[in-house]
Simulated scan of single mutants.
Amino acid sequence: MKQGQGWSPEQPEQHYLVQPRTVAGGGDIRHVSEYLRASGWRDRSTKRGPVRMESPDRTLRVAYDPHGQPGGWTIHGKATGANEEWSAHLGRQTPVEIVAGLTDALTLPRSAHAPNVWAPLAESGWNARFEGNSYSATSPDGTAWLQYRQETDGTAMWWTGANDTRGNSWRGAFTPTTPLHVVQAFATQLASPEPVMRPRGRVPHSSKIRTWSVSVTPSQLGAWQQARINTARAATWSRNSHRSARPSTSTPPYAHAGSARTRR
């Protein structure tokens, strides 16, 4: 049968699965911002300015500014009740999938279980050790780390980052008041062995990465992105429904942020 005039089949586009994710490059920031928007966060960005997202209760803010010093992601939580003010900064080359580990967690209720920041690192074979006043864990290939360091004057800080000689290095820091379940969610994505997807032309030039070429149609890519947004909307609808019906007596199950990730 003859196709209608102007009809053309979808053309696959070349993408790459990149591993390890820690030095895969920054990626598309909409992976973070669109999930927050679908979770009911307000977009406070200005035209041609940094991306700024604010939680519905106005206690949390996530911003991305590639041009500031130091450029990258800034996450801030206001003091609320028993929670102290906290903040985190992640460099511009931090992969968005790892950033989303932190920011996705901000949209979810806390688990009833006590958080363990080091557990996901240990499960992925990271090497943990004490070094003076700090406790550190390093990825098996040595490219990434997470450290909790306490200085002699009593001050403390979480430090993280990844090393690469070809411009894909990044650093991050969290104040010691950062909620531990947030740091754990970040650590889970930091240590994940799953590759991340990058389009052709956005794959880092590095001897430390492995890549696999895959053909992806625009509709496939759009469907995967939409599935992630749908996950956020469904979780938000569920929480709002429970609140309007009765006081919540249980914690909804954690919806893994990677449900629409790149391994297909």
Rank of each mutant, 00 (worst) to 15 (best):
G6A: 01
S8P: 00
E10D: 06
Q11I: 14
Q11F: 08
P12E: 03
Q14Y: 00
L17M: 08
L17K: 05
V18T: 09
R21C: 14
R42A: 11
G49I: 13
P50H: 13
P50G: 09
Q69Y: 14
P70F: 12
T74G: 05
I75T: 03
H76N: 14
W86A: 12
S87I: 01
S87D: 14
R92I: 13
I98C: 06
A100C: 02
L102R: 04
L106N: 02
L108G: 01
S111R: 07
P115W: 05
A119F: 11
P120A: 07
E123V: 09
F130H: 15
G132A: 14
S136T: 14
A137H: 08
T138N: 09
A144Y: 10
A144K: 02
W145Y: 15
T155D: 11
W159H: 08
N163I: 12
G167F: 10
S169L: 12
A173H: 15
P176E: 15
P176T: 09
T178L: 06
Q189G: 12
R202S: 08
K208T: 06
W212F: 06
Q220R: 11
W224K: 06
A227H: 04
A227M: 02
A232Y: 08
A235F: 03
H242Q: 15
R243S: 13
S244I: 08
P253W: 12
A255G: 08
A257Y: 03
R264N: 15
R264Y: 14
